[in-house]
Amino acid sequence: MAREVSKGRKAAVTALAWGIGLLIFFPILWTVLTSFKTEAEAIASPPSFLFFDWTLENYETVNERSDYLVHFWNSVVIALGSTLVGLLVAVPAAWSMAFVPGKRTKDVLMWMLSTKMMPAVGVLVPIYLLARDTGLLDTKLGLVIVLTLVNLPIIVWMLYTYFKEIPGEILEAARMDGASLSSEILYVLTPMAVPGIASTLLLNVILAWNESFWTLNLTAANAAPLTAFIASYSSPEGLFYAKLSAASTMAIAPILILGWFSQKQLVRGLTFGAVK
């Protein structure tokens, strides 16, 4: 039951919350606005907030530099590729742990989680050398492999917490009714498992898209995804703010939209089921 509150109090809370929300969101809003300015207006002082000549020239310039699309495509391949490979390996593992738990299932889960606690910098040198010696340095395949392994524990854990909520009795009931194994999987399990798999996919695409340690250290010109491409803009001059903003807006927009859809899964995935 919602508690009764006075209109005045509700208005005050609303004003405060919106104020703080807009303040936190402001750097993103400012980036998007700046991406529609000319370079001169982008560094004008005092800055104009909305009343400037809106232009799309920065987006055209950034897109004309063909390398932007290459980096964008790298991000897509690496984020989707590492997530899909991760799911392929993780679904059977999580499935067997959730439905046929053994004595050591809990230990295996905890051990998987512990691999996530290893700081990346602790294995930077060997991974770099291994990638170099196998010719995987600065390739998309190399990053797909590394990011798959980096995120595999989270994928297994998320899937496990979702699969565990599927009641085993339903499977038994289907079997009692004479369902064959294939129809059991197709008509009973899949519909119940798909939402969990979709949420896991979503969160891991986001994590892989933004991953900024391995992508910066294992790529150069060829396989660099957007994280590394944008980092190369870090010159101190003020002549490129509008273009930097346009490139940034395009880099963050798809993931921001996906992220807003995945708020609930985010809590669950990143706390390993400890907070639901």
Binding site: I20, G21, L22, I24, F25, P27, I28, T31, I206, W209, N210, S212, L216, L226, T227, A228, I230, A231, S248, A251, I252, I255, L256, L258, G259, W260, Q263, L266
Partner: peptide, 12 residues
């Protein structure tokens, strides 16, 4: 609005 910064890649 409040959640948005979490989805921004660190270099951006």
């Amino acid at each position: 609005l409040v959640i948005a910064p979490f989805f921004i890649m660190p270099s951006v």
